[in-house]
Amino acid sequence: MTTEAARRLTRSTLFHLVSMALAIAFLFPLLWALLNSFKSKSEANQQPPTWFPHSLSIANYRSLAGFDQGIGTYLTNSVLLAVLTVIGSVVVCVLGGYGFARFAFRGRTLLFAATLGILMVPYATILLPLYIVLGHLGLQNSLIGLALVLVMFQLPFGIYLMRNSFESVPRELEEAALVDGASSFGAMRHVSLRIVLPGVVTVALFSFLTSWNEYLAPLIFLNDGSKYTLPVMLVNIRYASYNIIDFGALQAGVVVAMMPCLLVYLLLQRFYVSGLVTGALRG
């Protein structure tokens, strides 16, 4: 009996040793960027690097404020882009999902297929003609144009998710409201929308992460420094070859760019996983 208990203890210890080593390997780069960003200027650019900051300082964040247009501009642009993309995706996907779930109209199947078809076309290949289309619409070099493009790429997942969510809401629930004289939109808004709210949060979460992290599309569509978003700024600091690269500022920039994603994920994990399950079911 004691040997059995001892064996169990050994196994458990071994499991936690291996798992902890793996967890540290995964978390370490994130933690190190965080630690580095709070080192003093000289310590952050010191060779060889120190493991822990000798003294805490916000000098690196200060120098971000002085980089080109200043981090305030880039942060504002990133937030603006995220807000536009999230609102756009949610509105279009809720309306579209409801339309596909509740109504029969000509071209329904075709439109649905075309929407899912966006998934089949590699993202990078269509950016070139999109650049031309946005030019014709007067939306080149604009955050609104960029947000529209990002909304378009959210549609296959978002429409699919919202259509399925609305379809799982029994029609009878809306019928009462319709009899009382509510419009279709009113019935959707006051009855079904509450029930499909988890799906709406999932759509919002995914479009936030996409717009916050997107790099290639802003790189192509924005050609005015005052419009750049955080990821574009980061890579510009890395390629600022005209002076010596400031490693401390770079790490601080990484922290600013990744913190919102980590926090949002940790808060809304539940919706993220349900979204992945839907995504996985797509196949």
């Binding site: 279009v92 509740r102 075309a114 269509i126």
Partner: peptide, 22 residues
Amino acid sequence: PFTGLLFVTPTAVIVAGLFLVP
């Protein structure tokens, strides 16, 4: 059917203008 079309109009405009046309 007309109400249904209204709901999917934003989707249709985006899919046509920013996907099919490009």
